[in-house]
Design a protein around this nucleic acid. Structure first.
Lengths: 151, 151
DNA sequence: TATTGTTATACTCTATAACTATA
DNA sequence: TATAGTTATAGAGTATAACAATA
């Protein structure tokens, strides 16, 4: 457990790297006319239509914050609200055809941007980094956010 | 440059890991009566006394935001403002004895917290992760933030 | 009574513009 | 004229509380 003086704290490096990726991906998505949050919402809502609160929990937002976020996507024609026949309190959020197209383009853009940033590491370094981060996060994955499929 | 479907995007993993570290370190520092920002400010101001704006640039804050931040540290007796005899517009920020003690304790707390989080990776994994992140950040290190010394 | 979505509201954080005192 | 620090102010972003419709 003894820790020598081995450079800057890992937390600082992680914060920088995370910021670097967020900024690059955000810029790339902006060119497609959306934001990182918008894209993540489309990802979360894709597949089966979901109640807003479920969506909020998936992305880690408050339900009140989610209202405006979904409003925005609706205004852009990327998702639509449907009443749930089984429970009329619920408003199911469904991705439209146009939203689906944007989501697919977003995936490509995110992948390309990340590939570029990770280029320096080479294929092996890339896999190592991914593996180390996954080990670091351990069981904490899948609780919320972009779990599951391949973005 | 071809990218297969190799799991969740690295950006998401980095964001999670960064958040994990920030939260853990923040909690640990809270027990010592300070915050991550407060600690980073003490780190940045330690050594020679510095003008507020230099400090602001180091930490990546606006000069107006820095005023309140330094006010807070002054109120807690952790730093003090001194007039610069060479230029009376400048207010040099100097870490007090008490601030220096807190800074040293903070370093220990941060190191211990990180060591615990990184424990799963083993010594080799820890060094690999640090190396990969440093390569990833490339020349971007040292521009601002916790550059230089060992925390 | 509890829950989904909604609104209104307050709070935090940060940045912009304008002011002072020095240079 | 320009700069360091300060203040006042406005803008995001977020969360808390209260309300309507429904269960």
């Amino acid at each position: 457990m003894q820790q020598g003086c081995s450079g800057p704290p890992v937390g600082a490096l992680l914060a920088r790297a995370s910021h670097l990726f967020n900024a690059a991906v955000g810029d790339a998505l902006a060119l497609e006319g959306t934001t990182l949050r918008g894209f993540l919402l489309l990802e979360a809502a894709s597949g089966a239509a979901r109640p807003q609160q479920v969506l909020a929990a998936q992305v880690g937002l408050d339900k009140t914050t989610m209202v405006a976020a979904v409003d925005d996507l609706v205004a852009r024609g990327l998702v639509e609200r449907r009443s749930d026949p089984a429970d009329r309190r619920v408003r199911l959020v469904a991705v439209t055809e146009r939203g689906e197209r944007l989501r697919r383009r977003g995936r490509e853009v995110v992948a390309a941007t990340e590939a570029e940033l990770l280029d320096e590491l080479g294929e092996r370094g890339r896999d190592e980094l991914r593996g180390l981060l996954l080990r670091l996060l351990g069981g904490r994955l899948g609780a919320s956010g972009t779990g599951g499929s391949c973005v």
